[in-house]
Design a protein around this nucleic acid. Structure first.
Lengths: 158, 158
DNA sequence: ATGAAAATGATTACCATTTCCATTATAGTT
DNA sequence: AACTATAATGGAAATGGTAATCATTTTCAT
């Protein structure tokens, strides 16, 4: 059992340890939850999932771990404007899984999309280069959000 | 004096009244502050500025007015990820002043840029069209953020 | 000027996130 | 495997931005 937990997300261990952090049970389970779930979970949602697997992990640890993961770049932290942050693993075993988001301004739900990403990425790279030079800004990432009304909310509001 | 206040941002009145809202002193001053200041102010910053001009306007009114302005599209509300929302007028007397942001992950400062916007906008329009169709999503706006280290923080951290 | 409706501000409530600190677990070294 | 310095933990309380409440005041069409 102890072993099963530990074998969950082997590919992450190196990164974690490499930054000088200890790999604890709590952190391991949080990584597992992130890796095995649908994307953009809130801290509280993560806490509930973690808690159901391992009840003596506190919300504090979840927040702390998410902060570390965000700072080391293992996890992306998003703010969709509903007052709670969302977190998702920046890459899976199959490599990066970059995507952008569509946010419903009514129900706050987020849809991921990877369509059109290729063309976007190409433009973004160019833009990043230009911006880096002009503002002497070292760019490490980007976030693209489209706001609007989802199918369901369009009907409800009309 | 009363008159001076009232003449500040004439071009906005129509929009405001057109939505069925009354034009009060407080709202007028908040609009003036937004129109005359550097961009992306937080609610509290707006409150302080408003308060120095007209001390009996409360923080509640600032929040309420900003909410109205955001809902009616007169103001954009941004979330740069530091826990407080930023607000800016969506257009000035000279028309729209759309721009994107560069956020320093260290000092949280935001830089506006309008360079490269044209090419970006073109791509975004295409993307919006594709996404609308695919997800049946009625897109009303977008937000593009680049994260990184500003010139100053690059030196300090190194 | 008048009155219905909307706006106001002070306070309180809310809720996500952080801080504090005494206790416990980790991992490198014997 | 036991030891130890150090980092990690969790519960409770604090924080801080924003929203709700409600009695009072202001706005604006008449």
């Amino acid at each position: 059992m102890h072993n099963r937990q530990r074998n969950g997300q082997i590919w992450l261990y190196g990164k974690f340890r490499g930054c000088g952090y200890k790999l604890t049970m709590g952190r391991n389970i949080i990584l597992n939850v992130l890796a095995n779930s649908d994307k953009h979970l809130s801290a509280e949602e993560i806490y509930f999932k973690v808690h159901s697997l391992y009840p003596n992990i506190g919300l504090t640890t979840v927040y702390r771990t998410l902060e570390i993961l965000t700072n080391t770049g293992l996890v992306f932290k998003f703010d969709f404007g509903d007052g709670r942050a969302r977190y998702e693993l920046s890459q899976g075993p199959k490599g990066t899984r970059h995507h952008h988001h569509l946010i419903c301004t009514n129900c706050k739900r987020a849809i991921d999309y990877t369509d059109f990403i290729d063309k976007e990425i190409e433009l973004l790279k160019e833009t990043e280069k230009g911006l880096s030079e002009k503002f002497n800004f070292k760019i490490s990432g980007h976030q693209i959000l489209f706001y609007g009304l989802c199918e369901k909310c369009q009907k409800e509001i009309k």
